[in-house]
Amino acid sequence: MAGVRSSNEQSYVITALVEHRPGVLFRVSNLFRRRNFNIENITVGTVDPTTARMTIVIKGDEKVVEQVVKQLNKLVDVVRVSTLDPENSVIRELALVKVHAPNSTARGDIVQFAEVFRGRVVDASRESLIVEVTGTPDKIDAFIDLMKTYGVKELARTGITAMVRGPKTVPG
């Protein structure tokens, strides 16, 4: 699937609106483990006081995705599930990259690269910079690859969140 990391198996993006309750993340991840589904990535965020939204990336074929959606739907705490068509969705991830930057040449280069990637330098010390980048996972991969020339000291990625384009919504 375009947009998300490529490999021989396809990746699919699934969004689920769930009850905002203790234990829900456990139930969902436990289901994946028990059914032998391969999670690549899972993120959770609050939508309103009673609802949270999960974005799940899984690897597999169409049959697997169909089972994932059906099994998720069986969880009482899951309100609604849908698969996103990557061609027709906005998919974003945020990364914080701490880069080794001991001299002004390195700093200058890093700042320039960050600009090209529409990133921002959010912290600086004598030896390092923290750059914040947002975008598709591919774009973030590319940025991290570039930073490796300087030395990536630490890396934090949020995992993706996603939304279908246009007026259509995942109804709550």
Binding site: G23, F26, R27, N30, L31, R34, L75, V76, D77
Partner: peptide
């Protein structure tokens, strides 16, 4: 028991 029975109960 909640953790133990999550995968073996409907809820």
């Amino acid at each position: 028991i909640i953790g133990i029975t999550a995968p073996i109960t409907k809820h």
